[in-house]
Design a protein around this nucleic acid. Structure first.
Lengths: 206, 206, 206, 206
DNA sequence: GATGAATGAGGATTCATTCAT
DNA sequence: CATGAATGAATCCTCATTCAT
């Protein structure tokens, strides 16, 4: 990524990104106020528009920033030698949620990313960056022999994927209402149970 | 539902509702413009506020309107004597999608209903109307003996539910890009296959 | 006064008047809402405009209503045989405040009557009704021999009048913050002291 | 006073202030239109809100502006070595009226300042700025031996103060209808006579 | 690089008043 | 008498964006 903010001093850059993530995370794209962002980041109106052509461009920057963070973390966090797909999916979601935990604004922002509000051009960007990872996720070095014979594996994966999307959304929305890590761990254990059930249902018995 | 618009002539009422559904479906709550709605519905600014106290109130009206339409259709459409849960879920989603097909704006609007943007009080309303149906859906006259022994049925239902939510969202977003019923039927057949896979995985073999 | 509301049933008439006094008392003329008035009085928008040509006309009605109430009470309450002007002024202000106490909305309304916001035509009305009483107050059967010799009595009266205006405004604004009649009585005793001081300063020693 | 408008070019600043004083002086706070102000001042809607957070903030600014103008002029205009209280009051009112003459809108605005319409927080401001001056007015270096023995001096001062408030209001309202300085001088001479009468009544005979 | 003044269209909402029923 | 639906201009305020400094 050619970072438009590269020339900005790190400390200020982080301030700008955080302020923007916070504002976009808390509001819809249209309602999010560049006024609020610059005030919170302590920069001037003009400077924001010096770096970003428009509100759209700023949003796009955050989008890519977020996806790269997520993508790289997942790429580096997964044990690509382990051919167990369900394990891999579990790891991916764990990493995703870890990041969300660490960057709360990014979490809020992440949730808005998939809303219908997203501009068409930006949506294209998302689809351009995400699939590469998805492809590797589901193709690279997967041991499909773990699945039962005569199973429509592709559809099974879709099943699990849609389930995981829904479940992680549930967890994400939990972040707002719970503080104790104990409660969070419980949600994770719950997820673990589900994944074991998927294994039970679709993996061969050893 | 005590219908605020009851006194309005049917033809005009429908125009107002449709215009509002269209606008709220196409935009976030905040960005949705009452100006656009009244212009599209051919009424005056004041009249809208004669019937609805505020933009919020209008949105709430649409929310309840939508939920009742959906809820009643499902309540009446389901064969409550059939104890097969997966069949029941399938029927429910078919009805839901039928309505969405008939009221395209209602479909778009329906998608925004569950967004984080929804005001707290309105969210309460949703939760007040929806669970009653959900309860009946999953409790009334279900033949749990269809499921395999020693199965965590509750979690299995959650699995399917989250999958269905994701899948119907996928279909809903398809409506925008496809016109041919042939394509739609294909999506439905696809859904059918998934549900059969769930049966295969979690129901006893006869 | 030809009462526009004469044909209205007494009970409803009072409700309308009170609601209007309340609203105009609480808000500036422009901000006062006829919507609020009709809602509070339990009548329809159309009915208000059946009786009153406009918001202005309603205000004018209240204005005259208030002035006549006040005027008549003072006319009847004063002992016109007592030639002591300061006594007379004291009685007048006591009556005025008694009425204000009895009709709290009328009190609030009365305060707005003299604001700069009053429309020019309405102001004329006030000046048309009030002076007659004022004339009688200061002319009829006054024993000017009570004043010291060589005193510019006319200017003394102006002195006292301006003082009383200011003081009664002070008391009126007190009504809002105090409930105990004890406190009110104290304000009155205070007024009494001032009037005695005026007598001391400007009346002959007996 | 931290002047929000400090950065604005003087010529434009004065235009804005005058337009605002005019509008607020002519209308109640609520009815006063920011639209009218910006149109009259020749600036854009947005610019007004760039400098002032809200209509309230603009009003507050004018309030403080007015009070400081008045306060400073009085502080500097009074001969604090002269212990004659009535002289001092006379000087104060003369200064006040001089300013009002110079800033006619400020005069109109001044009248609205004490209306019940004033927001509570703003009222607090008034009470915060005014009393300091009042204290000095009536306490600093006053020669109370000028007053007759055995006189309730405190109440006498209140008498005069209330009278002066009423009288200056009368003069102020005259400004609107008269142009000739001759007439104004006559009003002043009149005031002079009253103050002499107060001296006659409450000061010792030399 | 950096500032913040300036724009003006657009946002939701309120209002007095009219008029067909 | 009485209703309340209907109007549309006016209200304050916000916004993304531009540009001279």
């Amino acid at each position: 990524m050619e970072d438009v903010l590269a020339r900005m001093k790190a400390e200020k850059r982080i301030r700008v990104i955080n302020s923007a993530l916070k504002e976009f995370g808390a509001n819809s794209f249209e309602k999010a106020s560049t006024n609020t962002i610059v005030k919170d980041a302590g920069i001037s109106k003009g400077l924001l528009y010096h770096y970003f052509e428009s509100k759209d461009a700023l949003y796009e920057y955050l989008l890519i920033f977020t996806m790269e963070r997520m993508g790289n973390a997942i790429l580096e966090g997964i044990d690509w030698e382990d051919g167990d797909l369900i394990n891999r999916m579990h790891t991916a979601i764990r990493i995703k949620l870890e990041i969300l935990e660490q960057y709360p604004y990014l979490m809020d922002f992440g949730k808005t990313m998939y809303d219908g509000k997203t501009m068409e051009e930006i949506k294209a960007l998302v689809e351009q960056h995400i699939p590469d990872l998805y492809n590797k996720m589901y193709s690279y070095n997967i041991d499909y022999s773990l699945f039962k014979e005569n199973l429509d594996v592709k559809r099974v994966i879709t099943m699990i994927q849609l389930f995981l999307d829904g479940f992680s959304e549930k967890i994400a929305s939990s972040y707002k209402n719970m503080t104790t890590t104990a409660e969070l761990r419980k949600e994770f254990d719950e997820l673990m149970i589900y994944l074991e059930m998927y294994k039970e249902a679709f993996y061969k018995k050893e």
